[in-house]
Structures are given as structure tokens and as C-alpha cells.
């Protein structure tokens, strides 16, 4: 696969930088040939950014086949947005009698607040943050409103309750949609422990009884999620979220806010990666390793750079859990497999 974006040397195989550039500077797609378009669309699907790309390119004169595919993606994103907001509304109805704050997180929050980060974004589960003191009542309320435990597995359940930052996953028996009920934004096993009470205190009402994090709170959470709560998988989408939040809200007070939650370094790195990937900024050598991981996807949609991927997978587990616990966790998983 060759890239048709002109400033990539022609011998360089396409990777997800093709997508990053198209998102950041939509006019550049005009130089793509059929093969370049095919690569771009395939990578965008694999990174779950096809809807975002479709909205960014809306209005440009595109080849008919591309316009049709992106039209489908826009319609799918709109339907996804509708379903996500409906899940939030059903959670609101179930939790309203409790009178506790309910903070929407991630994609649903961006869509509900009408933010740029929500435009075309694919949204999976409903993620909400509630005060830890209200967790038992929230659990009872969602169970009473048709949500059910996904897996009645005692090991996983004990693991979640003891160490994770959320209830075990729940799924609605009629609507078939998952809800993740968080009481903080990182696992309790992580070395950094953000202050969830503070995040909730700073949260912003949406006008319908639900809330979102403050703008800086959203950026801090997105950065924490990108680096500490996963193996950077889906990282390009998360980084695009951060790029949009920064563009919309700026970074005033962000560093102090990040420091207060012990997330100064992840937030600073996220901002550098945004600048490097989406604005052509300079990156340090360690940042470039992250860029390599974030863009490890070829024009057929295949994950590439397996060594880089593995390094990040081990690293992400190490961040979430102290080493002895990691071994115990993996052993339990292996034995059951």
C-alpha cells in the first residue's frame, strides 16, 4: 500500500498517519487516488473513526463511491448518537429518584454536550460516574430497571469489586446495551489515584438532570484513559477526542487540574502527541514510540508493529496492577482458558 499524501516519501507504507492528517487537514484528501482512498477508509474503520472522518470531510467534492461510503458512515454515526443519548436518558430515569449526581463520561458526554469531540464519534457502552457513597443504591436502581450482570463469575466479580474503578459490566435485557458504572476514573490498583469527589464537584449540569465533567476534567479523564486504562488500543480515537476538547476549550488551568489528580505527566504527553500527530509539531524520542504505536495500522486495516504493541500491552497491565497481582490475575485467566 502506497500513500498518496504528498509529503510522505513514496516508499513509506501507509499507516494511520494517513488518517491523522486527513482528520486534521481535510483538504489534503483531494490528492488521494483510489488506492489511497481505500487505505484511508479501511484504516478509519479499523480505528473506529470513520464517522468522525465522514463529518470532517462533509461538503468536499469527493468521488461518488467515497461519498456513498461516508454518507453511510454519517447516517450510522447519527443513529449511534441517538441510541447513546437514549441509554443516557433511560439511566437518568432509573437514577432520578436517588437524587445523586450522575456524570456522563466519554463519547456519550461529548454527544450530550454537543461538543466537537462528539461529532461522528462512535459510542459504545454508556459510562457514568457516580459518588462512591451512592454506589450500592445506584447498583440496586439499575438492576431494578432492567440491567443485568453480564457474567455471573465470582472471580471476575470479586476482582472488579475489589480492584476496579467500576461495577462489573451490566447489560440491559431488552435494549442489549451495556452500562459501566464508575466511582472513579482509574482502577484502585493504579499508582495514580485521581480524586473522583473533586471531579464530581467540578462537574457541569446538562440541563436534563445529568452532568458532564468540566472541560478540563474531560481532558484529564481522556488522558488518563489513553495512557493508564488500556494498552493504547483505540488510542487514535481517544487522542482525537483530546485534540477536539483542547481546540474547543483551550488549556487554561489544565496543568493545575491535572496535577491535582496526579496526572500531570499523562496530560502533558497527550498534549504533545496531539500537537505532533495532528499539527505537525516536534516530538521527543519517547513520544515517537507512542506515535509509532498509535499509528500502527496498514492500508488493509491490519495492526502492524507487533513488538511495539506487546511492549504497550505489558506496560498497561503493569500500570494498572502491582506486579504480583498481575501474575495472579493472568494465572487465573490462563487456568480457566
Amino acid at each position: 500500500m502506497r500513500s498518496a499524501v504528498t509529503d510522505l516519501p513514496p516508499t513509506v507504507a501507509a499507516d494511520a498517519r494517513l488518517l491523522a492528517r486527513a482528520l486534521a487537514d481535510p483538504g489534503r484528501v483531494m490528492a488521494l487516488d483510489a488506492e489511497g482512498w481505500t487505505s484511508l477508509l479501511t484504516i478509519a474503520r479499523a480505528e473506529q473513526l470513520i464517522g468522525t472522518l465522514a463529518l470532517r470531510l462533509d461538503g468536499l467534492p469527493l468521488p461518488h463511491a467515497v461519498e456513498a461510503i461516508l454518507g453511510d458512515a454519517r447516517a450510522a454515526a447519527e443513529q449511534g448518537r441517538r441510541a447513546a443519548l437514549w441509554e443516557a436518558e433511560m439511566a437518568r430515569r432509573a437514577l432520578a429518584p436517588l437524587g445523586c449526581p450522575v456524570v456522563l463520561l466519554k463519547g456519550t458526554a461529548y454527544a450530550a454536550a454537543g461538543l466537537m469531540a462528539g461529532q461522528g464519534r462512535s459510542i459504545g457502552d454508556l459510562d457514568i460516574l457516580v459518588p462512591r457513597a451512592a454506589l450500592d443504591r445506584v447498583e440496586a436502581a439499575v438492576l431494578g430497571a432492567g440491567w443485568e450482570w453480564v457474567k455471573p463469575d465470582p472471580y471476575d466479580d470479586a476482582y472488579y469489586r475489589r480492584w476496579m474503578h467500576e461495577l462489573p459490566p451490566l447489560i440491559h435485557r431488552e435494549r442489549d446495551r451495556m452500562i459501566d458504572v464508575h466511582h472513579t476514573i482509574l482502577p484502585l490498583t493504579a499508582r495514580v489515584t485521581p480524586d473522583p469527589a473533586r471531579l464530581i464537584a467540578d462537574s457541569v449540569p446538562l440541563g436534563n438532570g445529568l452532568r458532564t465533567l468540566s472541560p478540563n476534567g474531560m481532558i484529564v479523564h481522556a488522558a488518563a484513559h489513553l495512557f493508564a486504562d488500556g494498552d493504547l488500543a483505540g488510542g487514535l480515537r481517544n487522542l482525537w477526542d483530546i485534540r477536539c476538547l483542547v481546540e474547543e476549550f483551550g488549556t487554561e488551568g489544565l496543568a493545575e487540574k491535572a496535577a491535582r489528580h496526579g496526572l500531570r505527566l499523562p496530560v502533558a504527553r497527550a498534549l504533545r502527541l496531539v500537537d505532533g500527530l495532528f499539527a505537525g509539531g516536534r516530538t521527543s524520542s519517547s513520544d515517537r514510540l507512542y506515535v509509532r504505536r498509535l499509528t500502527a495500522r496498514d492500508g488493509w486495516g491490519r495492526p502492524t508493529r507487533p513488538v511495539t504493541r506487546l511492549a504497550f500491552y505489558v506496560r498497561s497491565h503493569a500500570l494498572r496492577m502491582p506486579p504480583a497481582m498481575l501474575a495472579r490475575h493472568l494465572w487465573t485467566k490462563w487456568r480457566k482458558a
Binding site: Q79, R82, A83, W86, E89, R175
Partner: peptide, 9 residues
């Protein structure tokens, strides 16, 4: 048949 616009259901 009823299509509920808000939920898409």
C-alpha cells in the same frame, strides 16, 4: 407499528 424517534426503536 410505532417508530419512537428519540430512541430509534
Amino acid at each position: 407499528a410505532v417508530y419512537h424517534r428519540r430512541s430509534g426503536m
